[in-house]
Computed example of a mutant assay.
Amino acid sequence: MSYNLLKGKKGIIFGALNEQSIAWKVAEKAVEEGATITLSNTPIAVRMGEVSALSEKLNCEVIPADATSVEDLETVFKRSMEIFGGKVDFVLHSIGMSPNVRKRRTYDDLDYDMLDKTLDISAVSFHKMIQVAKKLDAISEYGSILALSYVAAQRTFFGYNDMADAKALLESIARSFGYIYGREHNVRINTISQSPTMTTAGSGVKGMDKLFDFADRMAPLGNASADECADYCIVMFSDLTRKVTMQNLFHDGGFSSVGMSFVQWLPTKKDLMSTKMKMVISFTVNR
């Protein structure tokens, strides 16, 4: 159901790869809500992935770019403004990759050249993106810039590895640049800390299936899906959130606020039902 929340707005979506991508879902919802968009991903992702199919479906242009390259980012923003005939209203940074994770290097045995790449791709690219946009004066007043994060920026999750460091840096960039861009141009910058999501990138994390299941059991509302995350992004792009900036917004069904949960003691539905029955029997006997 469309609410026309982005009617007349224009935006750039970085990172859509396939139908499992959160960025893919955001692109679809943005257009559904009335926005005009451009898509960007690495040249190899454009050649090898399914982005062209998405661009045809949404009638939008794909601009290949390496998000770690300032020159490429300048091309994305300049070309997007040409297409839009004006400034950009919203930007999504949905980019993350760790060579150490891919190579199964543990946190106490990192390859530092790979770590540099992790930080550059997953976090510093966000800084470069914002800096390029600011220097080009590419973002409209009260425009919205978003990046996708994860609770591992604040808490330790075995197997998430150096991506946790990258997410912590990503959130810091949102705060630091959010202050400057907000004071000077009323542009808001936030991060959304999403539930574990079975995207192509997320599935590469060691033990992701167990992490997904654990979070789903712990969270009072269960894990938030990619579609639900896209809905949240749309709200953050809209005029409904004009005064929200420099925030890391948890979108995880309540997981980030839970300490000890009931399901930690009763890890399966079978155990849960068994315990309920015991409680009923005990209550009946002791009446």
Score class of each variant (00 low, 15 high):
4 N>R: 12
224 A>S: 13
91 V>S: 02
98 S>N: 05
204 G>N: 11
243 K>F: 11
7 K>Y: 04
120 D>H: 08
198 M>A: 14
211 L>D: 03
8 G>L: 06
179 Y>P: 01
262 F>Q: 14
36 T>L: 14
32 E>R: 15
210 K>V: 12
142 Y>T: 10
279 M>D: 09
88 V>K: 07
279 M>Y: 05
165 D>K: 04
264 Q>K: 13
179 Y>N: 11
120 D>Y: 07
268 T>K: 08
125 S>Q: 06
24 W>V: 03
50 E>G: 04
14 F>D: 00
207 G>F: 07
280 V>Q: 12
241 T>S: 15
141 E>N: 12
103 K>W: 07
242 R>P: 00
153 A>C: 03
277 M>Q: 15
20 Q>E: 13
225 S>E: 01
131 Q>D: 09
43 P>A: 05
269 K>W: 14
141 E>I: 07
181 Y>F: 12
48 M>H: 13
236 M>W: 04
29 K>T: 03
194 Q>N: 12
99 P>A: 10
27 A>K: 04
30 A>Y: 01
10 K>M: 10
33 E>T: 00
281 I>N: 14
9 K>H: 13
15 G>V: 00
54 L>F: 06
197 T>D: 14
244 V>A: 12
280 V>W: 13
264 Q>V: 01
138 A>V: 09
118 T>H: 08
287 R>D: 12
103 K>S: 14
194 Q>T: 11
210 K>P: 02
69 S>Y: 08
9 K>T: 15
273 M>D: 15
231 D>K: 14
169 L>E: 10
53 A>H: 05
67 A>S: 09
26 V>D: 03
1 M>W: 11
169 L>D: 05
141 E>W: 05
191 T>A: 08
134 K>N: 12
153 A>Y: 04
207 G>A: 12
227 D>V: 00
119 L>H: 02
81 M>C: 03
242 R>M: 03
19 E>A: 10
16 A>M: 05
118 T>E: 09
264 Q>Y: 10
131 Q>M: 07
242 R>T: 06
260 M>R: 05
120 D>Q: 12
203 S>N: 13
69 S>Q: 08
213 D>K: 15
246 M>S: 07
238 S>W: 03
35 A>Y: 06
50 E>L: 08
65 A>I: 04
105 R>I: 03
33 E>A: 02
16 A>E: 01
83 I>G: 06
228 E>W: 02
